[in-house]
């Protein structure tokens, strides 16, 4: 028997939140993107309910423009851990005429995900959606609650949020409403990476430095792919890069890197002077970009 349990404050908080979700809601779901934050969530959920299985399914809203490495990783993880995975496709929402594909230089399917997500919530009657958003990612996220109530239209009313006192979480909602839950709200990017290192978690290969065909635009490194709009004059070259987030190919920029191990990645993050969302093209659209998307129901 091991001696005394040493505590990691952030991990304990997240486990506590997961247990509150399981206890307070009828139909929770864990939104899984295959990215490092959702991988961290899966690990925390396992810990929260051990030796029982995670008592809710995972759901991936697939834009169809994901990095193939991420999808491969997603399926492997779900298989190995024996988890239930639901996939809903943005392509279906487009085919049904519910959303219109963007066109042009900065076109992305990132915003379109919202409709697919809200439809899926309604289809399965999910009352709690667990996500890996962190308050340090972006200014508008800094005010997000741990239990964040969304109305029937999935909208976030940032001026009318429930106060969260001590660690008491109020999950009472009306029929039709749902709660977005953020167990790693208080983690920073470095906290997540350190956790992945300490827990020896597997992550998709694109997080590590690899050779990739890229082109430069607005000082950012874009992945050259059929899903990413590219001007004629934008030249493709091969470069050693890695990704700090694994959003859509069309809205996730790479960074120059030679970090091929988790230790090297953590060291790089520690010294890094560009914030993680700085490599997210969708936030550069305007200073209030994230807040606007959130009001519309984006995660």
């Amino acid at each position: 028997m091991t001696e005394k349990l040493l505590i990691n404050a952030l991990e304990n908080e997240a486990i506590y939140i997961f247990r509150e979700v399981a206890a307070q809601f009828e139909k929770p779901v864990l939104l899984f993107s295959g990215g490092k934050d959702s991988i961290t969530l899966v690990r925390l959920a396992q810990k929260a309910f051990y030796p029982a299985k995670i008592p809710f399914p995972l759901m991936h809203i697939d834009t169809g423009h994901n990095f193939p490495e991420t999808i491969e990783f997603r399926d492997k993880l779900v298989n190995e851990l024996g988890l239930e995975l639901i996939v809903r496709n943005v392509q279906d929402s487009i085919d049904q005429g519910k959303v219109k594909e963007e066109s042009g230089r900065y076109s992305s399917r990132n915003v379109l995900q919202t409709t697919t997500l809200l439809d899926a919530i309604e289809e399965f009657k999910f009352d709690a959606c667990i996500g890996g958003a962190r308050r340090d990612e972006e200014k508008a996220r800094a005010k997000e609650r741990i239990f964040s109530v969304r109305d029937d239209f999935g909208q976030w009313d940032e001026k009318n949020q429930r106060p969260e006192l001590f660690d008491m979480l109020n999950g009472q909602i009306e029929l039709g409403q749902n709660v977005r839950v953020f167990p790693i709200s208080n983690w920073t990017e470095l906290d997540v990476w350190t956790y992945i290192e300490n827990e020896d978690l597997e992550i998709p290969s694109i997080y590590f430095a690899h050779k990739r065909d890229i082109f430069m635009r607005d000082g950012l490194i874009w992945s050259a792919s059929e899903h990413v709009y590219k001007d004629e004059e934008e030249e493709v070259e091969e470069r050693m890069v890695r990704f700090r987030t694994v959003g859509d190919m069309s809205c996730t920029a790479a960074v120059d890197s030679y970090a091929t191990t988790i230790q090297e990645v953590v060291a790089e993050i520690r010294d890094s002077s560009i914030s993680e969302r700085g490599a997210r093209i969708d936030d550069k659209r305007s200073e209030a970009a994230m807040e606007k998307r959130k009001q519309q129901g984006y995660f």
Binding site: M1, T2, E3, K4, L5, L6, I7, A9, E11, N12, E13, I15, Y16, R19, Q46, K47, A48, Y50, P51
Partner: peptide, 18 residues
């Protein structure tokens, strides 16, 4: 006292255990 599949002799305050 359990934490993530391991048994412990004691746990400090603020730890999420079973």
């Amino acid at each position: 006292i359990f934490f993530n599949g391991k048994k412990y002799q004691s746990a400090a305050r603020r730890s999420s255990i079973s």
